[in-house]
Design a protein around this nucleic acid. Structure first.
Lengths: 353, 353
DNA sequence: TTGAAAGCGCTAACAA
DNA sequence: TTGTTAGCGCTTTCAA
């Protein structure tokens, strides 16, 4: 047996118009452009609307204006606190502008991304890509159809907001160098992650300049479990210093090393990326490169809305947000010389970047 | 200068109809009820649609069917891993049924909840309340207008899915009792949380039956910071055992106690609720009452969709999901007698439950 | 099995 | 300042 929702159909603009004794267009105006309607009439309309409990139907409005005031936000793993926070700030910024968020948690699947986006495309005014495993060209195809902004990734032709990985990595390497480490292993995240490539490149450069040996293992899943797994491989290629793609991985690495009988930071120093809340909670607390998440969300939404409102998109180069190194307990003076031969910059496992 | 999106307007049903040489109604049928249209015609229409890249406009469809295939999911803090996971499973279940999720992160504000929901109401087919700080009556008002399901809360007249707090708390108390603790302090979450009241009540009952003294402090914010703050108050009313409203709070309590020079679990045992990922990551790992999040999300969405499809809602009593106690490192044998006078069951701070 | 035509509730010309 | 009148793109009677 079907229960009907709602019991009584919602009042329409026709009802308001009839009761107020004006044309529907006047009612419409009274809400959209109060200036363009007689003050008294407007007041009367408002009163009637209030009285009837009238709320403009957003669907109907969207059909005639082709504006839904909805934004799609896509991320690859809502369970990662980094994205959870990003979503929070994105939704806050959107909400302040009267927009609502359609969340797509792609769960690390590019097929899922693509299909969902395809479905959502006609419904949203714009798209925020918080992270994506899709190819550049696939993303550009989408960007051609709707205004889009990309976070954490540079995409020529599409406005993007990134953090200063280069400088962040540089700081991390300087920090480790200052602690007398001479070899750093990078624990890589997903191949499809733009930030991952960026970070590894930045590490190599910094290592080169500061005369440290750099290595890379991976790719691994960008999660605690991925880090745990990486710790296993790490045992085969010992280093005194590790930089992981992100915080969950770094924490996984720490736990994995501990299981293998190594102590952090006494035997191995570990650095993460993002400074999510959990990096403060674990013991040892994680040294990490902090990203300004709130700013990233806000900037992304702001840029997107600007484009929606007719601004020329700034697609020349990504908007770069500053980062900073937060030093906590997971890094310490190097206590022994690296046991591995100095291999120079090399990739010891997984696919090359 | 405005860039137009998309460059070329999307093909409509009219385009397909014209090219295929049929009426729009036939095209519509070909997609909605393939059985009711000649196989050849259907094939032709399909081919043309494919060729033109036709995708039915969901907005227009929604206007005439008053079905949007969107679900609102409301939670109070996406940053809390508990909700992040809940959202994930909810969105997965929704997606499998061809629905899309509108996320509302109310950020612990009931005003925000109410306003956003009001706005979203006409756009969604149904609502999943993951958590809410709104009053029962406010929620019921919403439930009258759209199909709704409530998670983590019992609400007469509205289908709801909850976890078995009673049993979970009972297990926790038994566990502590078995470790020779004789006094347990409950660190309360938000007053507006139904689960909070439930948990405290369950603790009192279990304490009574098992002959343990129970106390309550709070309310505190259901976050790491809230737990940290609680630890301060805890110092004034020492106990050897603490049960917190949720995991982040429990972890906050642990860190706070540590700062005050107490060791967990040697001096104080701490138990949390929810078994979110972080409870496994911290040291000591957290003993906690695990909730079947995936099931909760899936069940909620399934029930909601059933109602949408005309089923009679089961509103008599909440659907109760089983929980289990996960014992980890944050609880241990009580090493000393409680230093506080046996007060009996009492609430030493904050508002009474 | 197919077509014609009337909406769904709103906005946006265009007139008055 | 207001009203009239077409749509927006789809679904859904009702006829044929």
């Amino acid at each position: 047996m079907t229960r009907e929702f709602p019991r009584r159909p919602a009042p329409t603009i026709y009802d308001v118009a009839r009761v107020a004794g004006v044309a529907t267009s006047t009612v419409s105006r009274a809400f959209a452009r109060p200036g363009r309607v007689n003050a008294d009439t407007a007041a009367r309309i408002r009163a009637v609307a209030e009285d009837l409990g009238y709320r403009a139907n957003p669907i109907a409005r969207a059909l005639s204006t082709s504006r839904t005031r909805m934004l799609a936000v896509m991320i690859s793993d809502i369970t990662n606190p980094f994205y959870a926070e990003l979503v929070r700030w994105t939704q806050l910024a959107a909400q302040e502008a009267g927009y609502v968020i359609l969340l797509v948690d792609a769960q690390e699947s590019d097929t899922l991304e693509r299909e969902t986006l395809e479905r959502l495309l006609p419904v949203v005014d714009g798209i925020v890509i918080g992270s994506s495993r899709m190819s550049d060209s696939a993303l550009r195809t989408i960007a051609k159809q709707k205004p889009m902004v990309v976070l954490n990734r540079e995409l020529t032709g599409v406005p993007s907001v990134v953090t200063d990985s280069l400088r962040g990595m540089r700081r991390a390497v300087e920090h480790l160098g200052g602690l007398a480490h001479d070899t750093i292993t990078y624990v890589a995240g997903p191949d499809a992650s733009w930030a991952d490539g960026m970070r590894w490149r930045a590490l190599r450069e910094a290592g080169h300049e500061l005369d440290l040996v750099t290595r890379r293992i991976g790719p691994f899943a960008p999660t605690f479990a991925g880090g745990l797994k990486a710790a296993g491989e790490l045992a085969a290629y010992p280093t005194t210093a590790v930089i992981a793609y992100n915080d969950p991985m770094a924490i996984g690495v720490i736990r994995g090393l501990e299981r293998a009988g190594l102590r952090v930071p006494e035997d191995v120093s570990v650095i993460g990326f993002d400074d999510t809340l959990m990096s403060r909670l674990v013991r040892p607390a994680l040294t990490t490169v902090a990203a300004p998440l709130r700013e990233m969300g806000a900037t992304g939404v702001r840029d997107l809305l600007a484009v929606l409102n007719g601004a020329q998109a700034e697609t020349g180069h990504a908007f770069v947000l500053p980062v900073r190194l937060v030093v906590r307990g997971s890094t310490a003076q190097c206590s022994r010389k690296s046991t591995s031969p100095a291999l120079g910059t090399t990739n010891v496992s997984g696919s090359a970047s």
